[in-house]
């Protein structure tokens, strides 16, 4: 089917099987590899992007369901809240292998869009769908706290 959608303020239109997950359209058809593949079943959060201020798992979202929608990825250079989160991530020295961090940050972005001053419990609960095998959770939570002060 013909799909039109917007990624990080850029319009794309393509002809694609509507069942194709958004993740693989981003990574393999548009060569936007910033968004990562981790599990393919929406269990790890590595592929998280934001649509309508909600965190969605790109690996489990069909491209047909984003037709005529705008999505924001970790590569978005215009979202100021995202920039603040990324700065907080660098300042708190969060990333180790770094592979899950784009998903972690996008998940945190959706949290802060809805709740700019989350409690410690709200942060932990909201971030629970994103796995980090390096175990950087402690610093992820510190970075989110830091970003809430900056936003």
């Amino acid at each position: 089917m013909k799909i039109k959608f917007n990624v990080d303020s850029r319009d794309y239109s393509l002809d694609v099987d509507g069942n194709t997950p958004l993740l693989w359209v981003l990574r393999e058809q548009l060569n936007l590899t910033n968004t990562k593949f981790g599990c393919g079943v929406g269990e790890c959060g590595a592929c998280t992007v934001v649509m309508d201020n909600e965190a969605i798992r790109a690996c489990s979202t069909s491209i047909s369901s984003v037709n005529n929608k705008s999505i924001s990825t970790i590569a978005n250079k215009e979202d100021k809240d995202l920039k603040k989160l990324q700065s907080a991530w660098v300042e708190e020295d969060v990333a180790q292998c770094g592979y899950c961090q784009p998903g972690q940050i996008m998940n945190a972005l959706a949290l802060l869009k809805k709740n700019p001053q989350p409690s410690k419990e709200q942060i932990t609960f909201s971030m629970n769908g994103n796995i980090c095998r390096c175990g950087t959770y402690n610093k992820i939570n510190q970075a989110i706290k830091k970003a809430t002060k900056a936003i």
Binding site: W89, V90, A95
Partner: peptide, 16 residues
């Protein structure tokens, strides 16, 4: 010392 800034920024932008 924090992780080298070029690596850290590449990783938080998904550019690494």
């Amino acid at each position: 010392m924090k992780r080298h800034p070029k690596e850290a920024w590449a990783k938080v932008r998904g550019e690494a």
